[in-house]
Structure formats: structure tokens, C-alpha cells
Design a protein around this nucleic acid. Structure first.
Lengths: 296, 296
DNA sequence: TATTCCGATAGTGAC
DNA sequence: GTCACTATCGGAATGAG
């Protein structure tokens, strides 16, 4: 089991104060002002007054991903292609982008399915349009992504700690011991947040561009609204990065296997309880599990 | 086409003031005070605070049809058997019961599917448990029911007139001519409300006891909430009393025909427009048709 | 082809 | 296996001092 001994970089979610963390490689400058150009595109739509049919335009709805081309015409973007915007223009999304390197961009998932949910995006055009099964056959690329993902997971664990430690019994024990001056090597372990972070890809990603999920295991999110939201992370449809590249004959390559998993009955990630097709019951159960899990 | 030349008995809906119309054969007396015993049973449940699981009892919910037997034990009644209460104890339901004779009880449908919606219930135990197809093979019984239904339809037409005449162009024309002293035989016709009243039974009734619907054609009611609510009155599933008794080989006797009609796409009763399975669109359309129809 | 509540499912639109 | 909205479809309960 890996441990989180150090206290890694903070990735607080507060609105990006200019230069607050200084992790961006690309410059921002005046673009900071129009940072919402795409960020808001994918954000949940604010509750708007019910649109009377044929009434005027809505006031504050989210926009679908579009941009003006060189002649000023508006062009539709495929929704499944949206991630490339983060790859090509990470500076435009200071609130979403956590870290940028030559090779990767690390962002927050716009619709997080758990308490912490990040996406690691490779920037290499030679790889980022490939299906993960194919891209990860490049062992150098895979090694790079594993390193970056491991780093991202430490960030995620730190974020998780920031969000949960006030509830955590084991964190509290360690902190109290520390306050009492207990020598470092005699401190209780404290909570291993990294062990609750999972790294992997979907067997059949819905977004065109290669992305690795770095996600806490709790599935506690109001963005978990459908069967596939849950099952894509809690069945073999979720492929740990460690399993990559998949063997040629791995059943997870088969569409039938993927569909079968996505349509399975629900099983609690923590206690294994089955909920059949009763999504609402699962959701209520996840609430209670979350309350317990927080306190570990 | 039948006409409504006279102004038949009023059947106003206001809470039954004792003796206000004097149509009841059976006495009321002290029972008027406990008249809600069954009336409220079938009434829509008032909005109650969302019941938190395992929270206390709800405050004012409707009750299901039950009664105490001789030993004071509560007995569940089948929901489909509820109409017999009106037949056996019409005096208990002064608000619902419009007219009582030796042979029939005329009531308001507890969940009216149109502006006017009455039910004619035969009291004869020899008939009221039979399927309509069988009961109406007794020609004397059928003749009696037709007479009673025709009378009920005149009441319904009068009720419809009471509700609509303030909107009706043809009623207005007739009234204005009358005010001007136009001779009776030269008055414009006025609106024929009776022609908008339909009399019939369902091909397969859901309630156990024989009942004939006397219903205005508009289907304008917030109690029309489901496909079958609409289609049971607007497909051959609805059998005009004139068609009774059905021939031995009439297709409307076949369950498959009945089911096929109940699951048909929606067709506007007035303009014939089709709405497929889009119930909500049908409902919106019915609103606009009602506005037009009122003004005829 | 009782009503009602709740919830699962299905189709659509997004510039 | 985008999200969010609307609407359709499906089961279960329906009592009670």
C-alpha cells in the first residue's frame, strides 16, 4: 500500500486568483478575463425559469461547445470532442486546469462522479485520438502516463484529505498525537487517502480524447444520475491503468462485455450490497456509506 | 339530433344543502353528518408533506374503501368493487348522488374525465354484477337503462349549459334575441348541449359493478392523466349504449381488440389531429380545443 | 380497464 | 457510453385510535 507521508501541493477549488499557485506553464494575461468561454460550456445548467414554448432566448443557460472560425462563422463542435480544448488551450481554463506539462494536462472533471475526480489528458496528438487500448501499447507513453497519473493521484489524495480530514477518526488520532508531541516515528498512521484514489480508463470512453480518470472511490456526487454513471466506475468497465495494455483477447475489449457491465444491477462499492435496478435506493445507500466512510 | 328546448332540473355542484333539490328518494336525516364516510374514500388525496420514511402517520390522507363489520373489525374492500356502496347506500353520498329511483342511482364520477361526467348505476342485483354485454341481453333491462340514461343525459346537458353558456356564442345570440323580444319560433337555435353528451360503457369496465357513462365530449379534466383515461373514451373501447347488446362476434368483445385500442396513439376528439404517444402534447392541445369548443 | 406516488426508462436537443 | 429536460412507462400501496 502506498502512503501519503508528505503534504503535497494544494489544489484548492477556490476561484483561481491570478498566479495563486503558479502551476500553469502557459501564460494567461488578458485571457483570464474570458476564461469562462469553454469552462461554462460544460458546467451544469443553472435553474432557469421554465421556457415557455417559443418564448425568447433563455437568459443564462449553458452553451454547447462552439467557436467562431476564421470567417466569424459559428461552428458546432462534437460534444464528445470537447476535451481537446483543454489540451490545446489549457490557459483558457484556470479553474479547471490543475497542472500542465509538455506532455499532459490535468483537469477537474466538469461533472465529478465522486468527491475528487480528475482527468489526466495526454497532449501528444499521436496518442490522444487513439483508443486507450491502442495508445497504451506504446510502453514509453504508458510509462509516462503512469508517472503522471501517480503524481495526479497524490494531488487527489491531498484534496481528499483536505475535504475529509475534519471528519476522519484516524486523521484526528494522528493530529492529536502530533499535538501532544508524540515522536514522529511513533505517531499513529493516520488515514491513507491515496488508497481511496483509483486510476483507470473506461473500456469504451465516451469522450473522443484519451483521458485517465483519477477518482476517489466514494461515488458521492449529485452528478451520479444514471446507471452508467455508476457502473462505468464500479464494474470491469473501469480498467485500472495497471491493467494496461489489455491483452489482445481480454474480454474487456468486447462490446458485449462492456454493455453487459453497464447494464448490470447496482452493487455498493463499499459493502457489496446489491440494489438490482433500484437506482434511487442505491443513491440513498451511498449517502449513508459516505457518512461512515468519511469517519474512517 | 336531439334538442334541449326546455331547461331541465339543475344539478348544481354546490355542497348539498339539505333538501335543496329534493331529488333523493331515500331519506337523509342524521346521516348527512357522516356523509363523507365513502365519498372521501375515492377522492383525490390532498397534498400531504412528503412522508419521510418511518416518520409518523400522515395527517389527512384519503382512506381506502373499507368498512367495519359486525364485530368492529376493519375489512378491506376491493377497489374495483367500490361502486356498490352507492347502490346500497345512496343516502350516504348526498354530494355524489344526483338521483335515486327503485331501479337506478345516478352519481357524479368521482374522477370526472370531462366537464360533465356522470355514472348511471342499476340497482338490480340480478344485473349489476354482470358484464354489460351480458346484462344488456335482457331487453327490458336495456330499455329501462336507455330511458334512465336519456334522462340523465338531459341533466348532463343542463349542467353543461350551466357551465358553458357564458362563453357560448350561439347561446349568447339566442339570449340576446330573447331579450329583444324576438318571437319564440324565430329565435336562433341556441347551442345543442345534448349533442355533446355521450352515453356508453367501456368494452371492459375496470369497476365491478355495471355503470353507464354519461359524459361530455371535451375530455377537459385534470383527472385525465393516463393513456387509458383518454383512449377508453375516444376509441371503439367506448361502446355507445345504442350499440348494446353487442353481436356475439363483435370485435369489441375481444380482449386483444380492447388492449389494442387502449394502447393506440392519441387522436384529438375534435379535430382528429394525431399525437402518437405524446400525452403531454395532447393535454396542451385539449386545452386549446376546449377554449374554442366552449365558444361554439 | 380505480388513484396515487415513486422511480426507471427512453428520446431529444444542445449551435 | 456528454448533460439536462421532458415525458413515458412500470410497479406497489391504498386500511386502521
Amino acid at each position: 500500500m502506498a502512503e501519503v507521508a508528505e503534504d503535497p501541493e494544494d489544489i484548492s477549488e477556490s476561484p483561481a486568483a491570478p498566479g495563486s499557485h503558479g502551476l500553469h506553464e502557459t501564460s494567461s494575461g488578458p485571457q483570464s478575463k474570458k476564461r469562462n468561454a469553454f469552462a461554462e460550456l460544460m458546467a451544469p445548467k443553472p435553474k432557469a425559469p421554465k421556457p415557455d414554448a417559443y418564448s425568447g432566448r433563455s437568459s443564462a443557460g449553458a452553451r454547447s461547445p462552439s467557436h467562431k472560425n476564421s470567417r466569424g462563422k459559428t461552428t458546432k463542435l462534437k460534444w464528445s470532442g470537447a476535451l481537446v480544448e483543454y489540451i490545446d488551450h489549457p490557459d483558457r481554463f484556470p479553474q479547471q486546469v490543475i497542472r500542465v506539462t509538455d506532455k499532459t494536462v490535468l483537469i477537474r472533471d466538469a461533472f465529478p462522479k465522486a468527491t475528487v475526480h480528475l482527468l489526466l489528458l495526454p497532449r501528444s496528438p499521436a496518442h490522444h485520438d487513439l483508443h486507450p487500448h491502442q495508445a497504451f501499447e506504446d510502453r514509453d507513453f504508458l510509462a509516462m502516463m503512469r508517472d503522471e497519473a501517480a503524481s495526479a493521484a497524490r494531488l487527489a489524495a491531498a484534496e481528499l484529505k483536505r475535504k475529509l480530514s475534519t471528519f476522519s477518526a484516524s486523521s484526528k488520532a494522528r493530529n492529536e498525537a502530533m499535538d501532544k508531541g508524540v515522536p514522529f516515528d511513533q505517531l499513529p498512521e493516520g488515514r491513507d487517502y491515496l488508497s481511496d484514489i483509483r486510476i483507470g480508463v473506461h473500456a469504451h470512453p465516451s469522450m473522443d480524447h484519451l483521458h485517465v480518470h483519477i477518482i476517489s472511490c466514494d461515488m458521492h456526487s449529485d452528478k451520479v444520475k444514471h446507471r452508467k454513471h455508476y457502473n462505468s466506475f464500479n464494474t470491469p468497465f473501469f480498467i485500472p491503468l495497471e491493467d494496461c495494455p489489455l491483452a489482445e483477447d481480454d474480454e474487456r475489449r468486447k462490446t458485449s462485455f462492456q454493455n453487459a457491465n453497464l447494464s448490470k444491477g447496482f452493487v455498493c462499492w463499499r459493502c457489496g450490497q446489491e440494489f438490482g435496478n433500484k437506482f434511487a435506493e442505491l443513491k440513498r445507500h451511498l449517502e449513508t456509506e459516505f457518512e461512515q466512510w468519511k469517519k474512517e
